[in-house]
Simulated assay, not measured.
Amino acid sequence: MELLGPREIAAFALSLLDLTNLRDDCDASAIETLCKRAQGPNGNAAAICIWPRFVAQARGILGTSNPVRIATVVNFPSGNLPVSEVVEETRKAIADGADEIDLVIPYAKFLAGDEASVSEMVRAVRAACPNSCLKVILETGEIKDAALIRRASELAIAEGADFIKTSTGKVQVNATLEAADIMLQAIRDSRKKVGFKPAGGISTVADADLYLRLAETIMGANWLMPSTFRFGASGLLDDISAVLSGSTSARASTGY
Rank of each mutant, 00 (worst) to 15 (best):
F12A: 02
F12M: 14
F12S: 03
A13Y: 00
A13H: 13
A13T: 12
A13V: 10
L14S: 11
S15F: 11
S15W: 02
S15E: 04
L16H: 04
L17S: 01
L17T: 11
L17N: 00
L17P: 01
D18R: 10
D18A: 15
D18N: 05
D18Q: 12
D18K: 10
L19D: 13
T20D: 01
N21G: 07
N21S: 14
N21I: 08
L22M: 09
L22W: 09
R23E: 06
R23V: 07
R23C: 11
R23M: 13
D24F: 12
D24Y: 14
D24H: 14
D25C: 15
D25N: 15
D25M: 08
C26V: 13
C26N: 11
D27S: 15
D27Q: 12
D27G: 12
D27C: 15
A28Q: 13
A28P: 02
A28I: 08
S29E: 10
S29H: 13
S29Q: 09
A30R: 15
A30P: 01
A30E: 14
I31N: 03
I31W: 13
E32S: 07
E32I: 13
E32W: 14
T33I: 06
T33A: 14
L34T: 15
L34G: 04
L34C: 10
L34H: 11
L34W: 10
C35Q: 05
C35D: 06
C35M: 14
K36A: 07
R37Q: 15
A38R: 11
A38I: 05
A38S: 15
A38V: 08
A38M: 13
Q39P: 11
Q39K: 14
G40W: 06
G40N: 15
G40P: 15
G40A: 12
G40E: 10
G40R: 05
P41T: 12
P41S: 11
P41Q: 10
G43P: 03
N44Y: 09
N44M: 12
A45D: 12
A45W: 01
A46N: 03
A46W: 06
A46G: 06
A47D: 00
A47E: 06
A47Y: 06
A47I: 00
C49H: 07
C49N: 04
C49R: 09
C49S: 08
C49V: 05
W51A: 13
W51P: 01
R53Q: 09
R53M: 05
R53T: 11
F54M: 00
F54T: 05
V55C: 04
V55S: 04
V55I: 13
V55R: 00
A56M: 09
A56G: 12
Q57P: 07
Q57K: 09
Q57D: 04
Q57T: 02
A58M: 05
A58H: 03
A58Q: 05
R59Y: 01
R59P: 12
R59S: 00
I61N: 01
I61D: 00
I61T: 05
I61V: 11
L62A: 02
L62I: 15
L62C: 05
G63S: 03
T64G: 02
T64Y: 03
S65P: 00
S65Y: 02
S65K: 02
N66F: 08
N66K: 02
N66Q: 08
P67Y: 04
P67D: 01
V68H: 07
R69N: 00
R69A: 00
R69L: 05
R69W: 03
I70H: 00
I70D: 00
I70E: 01
A71R: 00
A71M: 06
A71E: 03
